[in-house]
Design a protein around this nucleic acid. Sequence first.
DNA 1: TGCCCTCGTTCCACTCACTGGAACCCTTGC
DNA 2: GCAAGGGTTCCAGTGAGTGGAACGAGGGCA
Lengths: 248, 248
Amino acid sequence: MVETGTDDALGVLDRMTLILEAFGDDDRGLGISELAARAGLPKSTVSRLVSTLVRQRYLEREGRRFQLGLRLFEMGQLAQEPRELRHAALPVLTSLRARTHESVHLAIRDGDEMVCIAAMRGRPESPLVVRTGGRLPLHATALGKAALAHTLDSDLDALAADGLESWTPETMTDLERLARQLAGIRAGKPAVATQELFTGVSCVASPIFAAAGRVVGAVSVSGCAAGFDVDRLAPEVRAAALAVARRL
Amino acid sequence: MVETGTDDALGVLDRMTLILEAFGDDDRGLGISELAARAGLPKSTVSRLVSTLVRQRYLEREGRRFQLGLRLFEMGQLAQEPRELRHAALPVLTSLRARTHESVHLAIRDGDEMVCIAAMRGRPESPLVVRTGGRLPLHATALGKAALAHTLDSDLDALAADGLESWTPETMTDLERLARQLAGIRAGKPAVATQELFTGVSCVASPIFAAAGRVVGAVSVSGCAAGFDVDRLAPEVRAAALAVARRL
DNA sequence: TGCCCTCGTTCCACTCACTGGAACCCTTGC
DNA sequence: GCAAGGGTTCCAGTGAGTGGAACGAGGGCA
């Protein structure tokens, strides 16, 4: 085998991952060549693997285009962590949206990002920060800060080691300031992010605790920065997070 | 390699599938031995594959138990067909529930089953027929009949070839009667299922058409069989299905 | 119509990733 | 203390998987 690249020793499963990850949410389907290019694998290999993936229904083919298949959706719904949390949270989120009329998000920490588990649009014109399944940075979102505030300091250091990416002029890229803010959150202040990820969008979030003080996720309310009333929303979010925890 | 069984020639991807499918929604996590037993694979093979799957985050480990991981959830959300349909349907479903106060389901046909793409509980005490990601038989549900009525007759024959499984005394196991009912649906009658899957639960459904008359899914309303008012609900469901189609 | 470019599949000799029984730790429980 | 069970590691053997090259099927352009 002629490994094109650096030091890799790829197994079939790793190649499969490369292929699956080549799909994005923008696409209406990818061909073998495009897939091979994105995954950095030879065409023949991709062709063979893809046909197995289609047989197993992880991919679907329509003519010469391929798309992520239904079975992935099914299996994804069986994933334990999001399933439990969603189940406990959905009714609470619904009423939170009804009370605030703003968009509501539920997310789980995954490494140095938050993964959105549920999203509900407030008003029809309200912005949705992420779709379900999407990822958010920890340091630039209220959801991320809520989760980050209640974990080990070493996590923060590890995060900062890679540098805090700047999303908008408001993004907190200074480790010291961020650490102070997290300390405030730990002391009881609400986790907020004002235009730190997207200009014009503000959020308030509250962590969801499981037994032993472990943070299992976070709820947030987000809306247009103009007229975003943190003082009104923060108690609502906090109450919702507690309600979810009670239902776990 | 000593293939224990019959005539199989399993590749790594097939083995992986066996492992992933060993997980059910009942479990709080499986160990290597249990997994190996369910998948019918040697322990050492399972151990090795599982550790790769964990590295790729398709599985998560907690102590000596494994569970389906977050990445599956993420990827599942990227699957194109459910994503598009859900996006178009969610607002419509919300208002359908508000108007009927009954549980609402959205499903996609997949082979000889329907896969639930979205589910909303009507009243807090209302029964949910399936959870999101769950599967339903075609012949015993309103959703299935709605989809089945508008496809080729050969589909029906293929379905009947395996025999129509009986779920309750009311399940339609007679091919002739089912075919007549489907013809009625095709002629404009609503697709209904009264206690045919679960005793005490009735449903009405309507197919969702895409361009070229292709059925892409179905919407249903379901509730307690006692006092289930088909005449009132059928027009609501039909209107919702049309609304979803318009938004596609 | 013929030419060319692209895209997906197939072929095939090579070889390394994968296999699985056995041995090896652990921890748990009697 | 020993037996039982669960998970990981070892290792020789080999066939599943590899990828370059060749092939056939469109599709656009002149």
